[in-house]
Computed example of a mutant assay.
Amino acid sequence: MWRTAATIAFRSLRWQDEVYLPDLNSRITVLDSEDRLITHLGEDQQAYKQQGWPNLPKSYYRPDKFSSPHGVCVDSQGNVYVAEWISDGRVTKLVRQS
């Protein structure tokens, strides 16, 4: 389901716990407390298959997709912050929608 998480972030809610894993399948995997998949964020199943990955040319990157996410944290409002290990580095904030 996921591979090689560099960090893990947890978010506890009254009704559900969430685990966020920066997944080297070029996505953030979100699981519940029973390890069931909730969703994948920013998934790009082609990025990690590209020659030269994770140092792909800037022209490849899109604001809504990840290439090589390595760090993740979640704030109290549920916004997700992702740091990517790419040639120039990139930090992305995903704003949680109600």
Results as ranks from 00 to 15, higher is better:
residue 17 D to E: 02
residue 66 F to G: 02
residue 6 A to H: 15
residue 60 Y to A: 02
residue 66 F to N: 02
residue 88 D to V: 03
residue 95 V to E: 08
residue 11 R to N: 11
residue 16 Q to Y: 03
residue 96 R to L: 13
residue 51 Q to D: 11
residue 1 M to P: 09
residue 91 V to G: 08
residue 20 Y to Q: 05
residue 95 V to L: 05
residue 12 S to R: 15
residue 16 Q to S: 12
residue 80 V to N: 06
residue 20 Y to L: 03
residue 17 D to L: 14
residue 4 T to R: 11
residue 30 V to N: 09
residue 90 R to C: 02
residue 26 S to T: 08
residue 31 L to F: 08
residue 45 Q to A: 04
residue 93 K to Q: 11
residue 71 G to C: 11
residue 94 L to F: 15
residue 13 L to S: 10
residue 11 R to A: 13
residue 55 N to Q: 14
residue 38 I to C: 01
residue 79 N to W: 13
residue 25 N to Y: 11
residue 51 Q to P: 05
residue 36 R to T: 03
residue 89 G to S: 05
residue 91 V to E: 06
residue 90 R to E: 00
residue 40 H to Q: 05
residue 43 E to M: 08
residue 25 N to I: 04
residue 17 D to I: 11
residue 23 D to K: 03
residue 88 D to W: 13
residue 38 I to D: 00
residue 34 E to D: 13
residue 94 L to Q: 05
residue 18 E to I: 12
residue 72 V to P: 09
residue 45 Q to H: 09
residue 82 V to E: 08
residue 27 R to H: 02
residue 54 P to Y: 10
residue 87 S to A: 15
residue 46 Q to W: 10
residue 28 I to A: 07
residue 15 W to C: 01
residue 62 R to L: 09
residue 39 T to R: 15
residue 92 T to D: 02
residue 79 N to K: 10
residue 52 G to H: 01
residue 52 G to E: 07
residue 73 C to D: 08
residue 67 S to N: 11
